[in-house]
């Protein structure tokens, strides 16, 4: 009586285990682009927040300034206690030409974006650190996209427009 019971229970457990094995949530699942930012310089008193965003194509005009990913509702402000901070951008698969940190001044609105937003650092090409690094997000996890945010070296967005601002 016991032997058949054991075999039935074992079979049931095996079937269930096979169905259930793995595939649950796993640690360190990056939803798109992830990395760690480190901070340099003094945080301005007028800071409202700092975000990391990604652009499929480099924003060369005011019209393309707000074409970043992820959507605004998914943006998470970075912690600004000075310690290195991990970030994760839930973005779709694809090629991203610019992964940048955006400093937002208090009083920001869409109309005064040129004067209240600053580029505070970006991911750089490992082969040519003077150039932005391109990030390809696909089914495989990309490498950690780490870079430095320097509050002493921030630039208005129009610096990258074509033509750039004076």
């Amino acid at each position: 009586m016991i032997a058949p019971m054991r075999s039935r229970v074992a079979c049931a457990a095996l079937v269930a285990a096979a169905l259930a094995c793995n595939e649950g949530l796993q640690p360190n699942t990056c939803p798109g682009i992830c990395g760690t930012v480190t901070f340099r310089g003094a945080l301005p008193d007028s800071t409202q927040a700092v975000y990391v965003v990604a652009y499929h194509t480099f924003p060369r005009s005011r019209d393309s300034l707000f074409t970043f990913q992820p959507p605004v509702t998914l943006l998470r402000a970075l912690p600004l206690d000075g310690a290195p901070a991990f970030y994760a951008l839930p973005v779709d698969n694809g090629r991203y030409e610019w992964v940048a940190a955006v400093w937002v001044k208090q009083g920001f609105n869409l109309a005064n974006a040129d004067s209240t937003l600053r580029e505070a650092g970006y991911y750089r090409d490992p082969a040519d650190p003077a150039q932005p690094g391109v990030v390809n997000v696909n089914a495989q996890q990309p490498d950690s996209i780490d870079f430095v945010i320097d509050f002493g070296q921030m630039h208005p967005p129009c610096r990258y427009y074509n033509p750039p601002c004076p």
Binding site: L25, P27, N28, T29, C30, P31, C34, T36, R76, A77, L78, P79, A85, F86, Y87, A88
Partner: peptide, 15 residues
């Protein structure tokens, strides 16, 4: 929590 909402210890999310 997700990055920015707590110290996620380098994780994309902390369930």
């Amino acid at each position: 929590c997700v990055p920015g909402a707590c110290d996620t210890r380098g994780q994309a999310f902390q369930p």
